[in-house]
Design a binder for these strands. Structure first.
Lengths: 185, 185
DNA sequence: CCACGAATGTAGCGACCGCTACATTCCGGA
DNA sequence: TCCGGAATGTAGCGGTCGCTACATTCGTGG
């Protein structure tokens, strides 16, 4: 493996940590390079441009989160939507995934205004989450399962958003209230 | 009324339209001034700085949305949370309020990273929406009413977010699915 | 040991950013 | 009519941005 490839991997991991810690606003080429412990000149040697560096780093971030999700939710078991919603709501208001949700909000916002490469990143991450939720729902009808997964993901993302706009206590209360939700049929 | 005050109002309205149409990414001082039909020098004469201009424009935007909400939802009537959720979900996926939701995502993202003045703006807008939803919920217990309002707002915002990440059809299907939600008790 | 490509450093380009100092024009009241 | 403040224009400051041209050093295969 060339030095470039090695560095690329090391730098990607550090970038992921930096993004989780500080968000996209501290993500200029020079700032990213400093956080990764390399010169800005070298960052753009390892990656062809800033977009590629960010894409790789975000892929790393979501991969890490995916592993945590796998570990925290009982594997293989399919749950009723009510339970999955309750667990997801609890998780998203917890301290562990909060950095990710904050970063995720920024990615979504950048995607909303069409900024490359965030539109692609947002689409991929959303698709990944939807597939993950779907695979854990004990709903037979595929169409209904997909729609339910979308609604659960919307609720989860919305709770993270509520936390930003109304504070953690309000978001926690809403997450508690999510336990009273029932899906029919 | 001085010319300055007159211009301030005219410019505020144009800025609101520009923000709705193009979002925060096209919101540099020079771009805002061009959209408002004044020189950048004059924009910062009417407003003391960029933050003040954006705050006024966003207040204008939310005021407009508030008027639309008042007009579209039966006034004075208190609804069951299921119905309010269904109506809100339908509204947020409609073409009318979509520009606002896109802008709202950007404001939330900026607030999440602590950017002034968006943290304040996000807090005020969220509080306004929560109060509006609460005033239309036929739930007796104030604490439960507040928590339910938070959950409904989270669902609505989440649907807008889902539309960005997964596309309009997925968001529509999830909004449809929201009709099957029941709150207990 | 040396040639050659990989790796790295130095320096800066042109564009945009928010904002301001300064000069000038406009206009209504004394 | 002229004076003073409001209104507006001109020009540019110091900074960050993403990115690159060019030069230099390093390390390894022949």
């Amino acid at each position: 493996m060339t030095i470039r490839e090695e560095q690329r991997r090391r730098v990607t991991e550090r970038l992921a940590g930096h993004l989780l810690a500080t968000g996209l606003s501290r993500a200029s080429v020079r700032q990213l390079a400093a956080a990764a412990g390399v010169s800005d000149r070298m960052l753009l040697y390892y990656f062809k441009d800033k977009a590629e560096a960010l894409s790789e780093a975000m892929a790393q971030v979501t991969s890490q989160l995916g592993q945590r999700l796998e570990a925290s939710v009982t594997a293989g078991e399919r749950l009723a939507p009510e339970r999955l919603l309750a667990e997801a709501a609890q998780m998203v208001t917890g301290a562990e995934v909060r950095p990710f949700m904050a970063l995720w909000m920024e990615v979504i916002a950048a995607a909303a205004r069409g900024e490359a490469p965030f539109a692609d990143i947002a689409g991929q991450v959303t698709a990944g989450f939807l597939a993950w939720i779907e695979s854990r729902l004990d709903i037979e009808d595929p169409e209904r399962r997909r729609a339910t997964a979308g609604l659960i993901l919307a609720a989860v993302d919305g709770l993270a958003l509520l936390e930003i706009g109304a504070g953690a206590p309000a978001a926690l209360a809403a997450a508690e209230r999510a336990r009273d939700v029932r899906f029919t049929p």
